[in-house]
């Protein structure tokens, strides 16, 4: 299952790679990374058919996670990828906003990787 992680913090990459060591090694999950909304869209241009799930931070300079979400929902609806949003604070307004724009789930920072694993496994088995 290919997952695209979008976050402006570069260290998210080693963090994910280590958290999901076993899964990556066993080819359960495959992670790719983009460090801005713009990069994510570039990536999706070629590979949108491979990506099952997009995990995106909301608070990013330039194109925000919300904008990225609305673009994805507009441009890629066949099949629509799952989008999980990551927010820094328990911010109701963005939460509702993201839901309306078609976010599938939410995670809050700091990421609880056990919870994330559970969610990813659910997606894997249901999808």
């Amino acid at each position: 299952m290919k997952i695209l992680v979008v976050d402006d913090e570069a260290d998210v990459q080693p963090l994910f790679l280590q958290c999901f060591r076993k899964e990556i090694r066993n080819h359960v999950f495959d992670f790719d990374f983009a460090f801005s909304g713009e990069q994510a869209l570039d990536y999706l241009k070629d590979k949108h058919s491979e990506v099952v799930l997009i995990l995106s931070d909301i608070n990013m300079p330039g194109m925000s996670g919300i904008e990225l979400l609305s673009t994805i929902r507009k441009d890629y609806d066949n099949p629509p990828p799952l989008v999980m949003m990551i927010t820094a604070y328990g911010d109701e307004e963005t939460h509702t906003n993201a839901l309306q724009l078609g976010a599938n789930d939410f995670l809050t920072k700091p990421l609880d990787f056990n919870l994330l694993k559970e969610k990813l496994n659910t997606v894997l088995h249901n999808g």
């Binding site: 913090e9 958290c19 820094a88 920072k109 700091p110 990421l111 990787f113």
Partner: peptide, 17 residues
């Protein structure tokens, strides 16, 4: 908050490792 998140996450991962 951002660096703190990394500190927490990397610490957890390390203990799992």
């Amino acid at each position: 908050q951002n660096p703190l998140n990394f500190v927490n996450n990397f610490a957890e991962v390390s203990s799992e490792l």
